[in-house]
Write a protein that binds this DNA or RNA. Structure first.
Lengths: 190, 190
DNA sequence: GTTTAATTATATCTTAATGATATATCATGA
DNA sequence: TCATGATATATCATTAAGATATAATTAAAC
């Protein structure tokens, strides 16, 4: 019944609602401002741009004439309407896939030590993430009053910060559980 | 260089390392025990089963003969080796996609009230999740000593619990930020 | 007891997303 | 000038998501 929605299309519409951009610039914007919770490759971007253009939701504002044949797109009124309609649709609960959890689920096939290494690597990555979020947050709070957009950008950063901090706590808790498992193996009957 | 890995193949190998299962039973197991951090559809499962069989990583233990032509698979020694090899590979940091954050990122296109509804729905879903995790945890802790597997299963549950609790805190923090945004609009100069 | 509905079971199809690669231009610097 | 890196568009194969088709078997309703 309800068909699959090309979310890349709405990322494009959303970014074009802020400013005119080319395919390559869109990719850069996504990798810069949305990369902590979204990604999109050229293989999805270019075909979707073509599709949006055919549907009249975006249009080319420069083409061929300028250097390198850069094609910059702008959003149309129909595009803005489509964007708002999508934004208003309720968000369904989604399964968030975690490779680390998939491997830990089958962790009993390895020695506890090997899984501890996994968790430790995960913790290190999370710690680096935390520093990034702290920087994002500092910058965004300093310009918070400049535009409503900044408040919404901040929401996404706060989400990442909270969740990442939670995963750090989990890493410590998990470490203890696996260390206990190791001890029990050495002394099966205490 | 490093090619894409079919993770569905390793989920299958992992589950078959616990017990023999058919395609349909695999789907049920995934939807039961892994659904909070993994999903797989028949469209991915059946072709992958065929592929794994051709590679000799799994084999059919019953076929045709019994009722309904149920085909139950078992993992081979080569399959166990492939599973361990994959489990030992380090987990790369991945972009976790959140539809809710994507929509909030472009939230300035809507009224704050509309975004507050989104956050509230998200909070409600998270609260229901928390109840599920509490149940999972209770069951797993009661059988923790029965098998090493249970400790690893518990790790994934604890992850979900921590992360979901963090999103609940975020929802409250975000609510306040958006309420402030609403107030500022009513009284632009305070 | 017979129709109906739900579950079991396998399979296929389309669309979306990922990841890799191809190609060419332009800018920078050694 | 030669190499390197960034810009820019495009395509391809594989993986994943989501929907649908089909049929048998079991459970429930009437």
């Amino acid at each position: 019944m309800k068909k699959k929605e090309n979310r890349t299309a709405f990322v494009i519409l959303g970014l074009l609602s802020h400013e005119n951009l080319s395919g390559y610039q869109l990719k850069k914007q996504i990798d810069a401002g949305l990369k902590e919770f979204w990604s999109a490759g050229f293989g999805q971007l270019y075909p979707t741009l073509k599709e949006l253009r055919e549907k009249g939701l975006i249009e080319a504002v420069t083409e061929g004439g300028n250097k390198r044949g850069l094609t910059v797109f702008s959003i149309t009124d129909a595009g803005r309407a489509a964007l708002k309609e999508w934004l208003r649709k309720p968000v369904l609960q989604q399964t968030v896939k975690y490779d680390i959890l998939l491997k830990l689920y089958f962790g009993a096939a390895l020695k506890p030590e090997e899984n501890l290494v996994k968790i430790d690597n995960f913790r290190k990555q999370a710690e680096m993430q935390m520093e990034k979020y702290a920087q994002y947050e500092q910058v965004l709070r300093s310009v918070l009053d400049d535009s409503d957009d900044h408040t919404y950008f901040l929401l996404t950063v706060l989400f990442g910060r909270k969740v990442t901090k939670a995963t750090l706590e989990w890493a410590e808790e998990s470490r203890q559980l696996l260390i206990n498992l190791k001890k029990e193996k050495k002394e099966p009957e205490r």
